[in-house]
């Protein structure tokens, strides 16, 4: 990691700690901010956070390793999480999964070589009545079909950011 990047991370964490607080209870909100801005929480970031909050780095690592939505390894720019629980399963999540795997050329738990997509399983996200459901970063897509997978991925490939996905319109919240 470049020093300038470390400095930026340090400054960011300092300002979040100022806004959110600098005791143990501020840990998860700060980690979410880091995750949101940097896409992952590096070991360096964990140690800075620990220092700021007066706790031990291993405690931060413990928390990061507990939550699926906090990553300590860099993930793809678009993290696609497909719901694997029973309602989505009955509504055809397998077809969607196969389509995702074929389209991206990776399996679940992997990241594409260009670093654009990461494919992961998720457990229930409360969209049981509109399954199969998947998440692209923090945007939900419901009633996903293999066709729609192609559309979503196409939009992602063209997009510079998650906001370009708005063009798909229907289905997101």
């Amino acid at each position: 990691m470049l020093v300038t990047e470390q400095e930026r991370l340090r400054d960011d964490i300092a300002s979040w700690a100022q806004d959110i607080g600098s005791d143990r209870s501020a840990l998860i909100p700060i980690l979410q901010e880091i995750q949101g801005k940097y896409g992952h929480i590096s070991d360096f970031a964990m140690q800075i956070v620990a220092d700021k909050l007066g706790i031990h780095p291993v405690e931060v690592y413990s928390v990061v390793s507990f939550y699926s939505f906090l990553e300590f390894k860099p993930a793809g720019r678009f993290v696609i999480r497909l719901c694997r629980t029973i309602a989505c399963d009955m509504l055809g999540k397998d077809k969607v999964a196969t389509q995702l795997e074929n389209d991206l050329g990776i399996e679940f738990g992997e990241t594409t070589p260009d670093g654009k997509f990461t494919l992961e399983w998720a457990n229930c996200m409360g969209m049981c009545d509109q399954g199969p459901a998947l998440l692209v970063n923090d945007r939900v897509f419901t009633r996903v079909t293999p066709d729609k997978v192609t559309q979503i991925l196409e939009a992602c490939r063209k997009a510079f950011g998650i906001y370009a996905l708005g063009s798909i319109g229907e289905g997101h919240l």
Partner: peptide, 10 residues
């Protein structure tokens, strides 16, 4: 207060 060991994972 050394902080070397913690429960990792879920």
């Amino acid at each position: 207060e050394v902080g070397c060991l913690e429960a990792i994972g879920r």
